[in-house]
């Protein structure tokens, strides 16, 4: 008997390459559940990724899927959306992919408000290459390239995207699976650029080095440190220390780029200034 979500998976391509206890399967599951619940057309949905552990997810997902080069999923996706605005384009990326090598593309896609849904599988580490620090690795954490502890400051990805003009920004975690599914669903429905910072756990390369010995320890850490957005706004800076807000953090209407372009096309077709 096929499971309800099985039609969204390329079952023949399983098992996946992720380590036992990795959070990426949970996030992937949330995405396909959100796609299912939002009722978008699977035949008209394209899933694009860059390079890294998270970016292997599209290979297991039964859509048109594009596994691109490191950091570049967003500009590839931009070309797809511009070429055919009817398509729902979902970008799956990691924290290294989206915030380091692809950081420029992330902020410009947010600025343009092109209709992509970008989901960052954020596990604070480069997993595929065995645990180097990323721009999301918390200060003081250990990584293979931070053997004495991370000395740099991390990004807050939601704040970054918001600062770049992102008009839909949300965060959730692999612990809050239903909540994660719901914010992704909202992101998919949003007509414009939407960004979801999906915290995921990497027990193999982050947890083991940072006193979170089991996947469960990592999930519990998410549970203990996540604060619903509404409560977050009422907290003092002292109370916020070490914690992070989850939920839809920004959601304001803004005209999507391909729609603006369609207006331009209509104008130039009428013999307007071109």
């Amino acid at each position: 008997m096929a499971l309800p979500l099985e039609k969204y998976l390329r079952v023949g391509k399983l098992p996946h390459i992720w380590c036992p206890g990795c959070g990426h399967g949970i996030v992937t599951q949330a995405i396909i559940r959100a796609i299912d619940e939002s009722g978008i057309d699977a035949e008209k949905t394209v899933v694009v990724s860059g390079i890294g552990c998270s970016s292997r997810a599209p290979g297991y997902m039964n859509f048109d899927t594009l596994h691109t080069t490191h950091g570049r999923a967003i500009p590839f996706a931009t070309g797809i959306k511009m070429a055919n605005p009817e398509l729902d384009v979902v970008v799956i990326t990691g924290d290294g992919d989206a915030a380091a090598i692809g950081g420029n593309h992330l902020i410009h896609a947010a600025r343009r408000n092109i209709g992509l849904t970008v989901i960052c599988f954020n596990n604070n580490i480069y997993g595929m290459t065995s645990g180097q620090y990323s721009p999301l690795t918390p200060t003081g954490s250990y990584a293979s390239t931070a053997p004495y502890g991370m000395i740099e400051r991390p990004f807050d990805l939601c704040e970054l995207v918001k600062g770049a003009g992102g008009s839909f920004v949300a965060r959730s975690t692999a612990y809050h699976t239903r909540h994660l599914t719901n914010v992704i669903k909202d992101a998919l429905k949003y007509d414009g650029f939407s960004f979801v910072d999906a915290l995921s756990q990497c027990p193999t390369y982050f947890g083991r080095r940072n006193k979170l010995r089991t996947p469960l320890d990592m999930l519990n850490w998410m549970k203990d440190h996540a604060v619903p957005g509404a409560s977050w706004d009422k907290m003092t800076p002292e109370e916020k220390e070490g914690k992070f807000p989850i939920g839809v953090l920004v959601n304001k209407p803004s005209k999507e780029l391909t729609k603006v372009y369609d207006e331009l096309l209509a104008k130039t077709a009428e013999g307007g200034r071109g």
């Binding site: 500009p75 931009t78 593309h105 410009h108």
Partner: peptide, 23 residues
């Protein structure tokens, strides 16, 4: 459609994407 991208790398990526979408 024309797009001025944020850099040369993005331009090359975008044309690959658009081509896969049939243009």
């Amino acid at each position: 459609k024309f797009m001025q991208m944020e850099d040369e790398i993005a331009s090359m990526a975008a044309i690959c994407g658009a081509s896969l979408a049939g243009r």
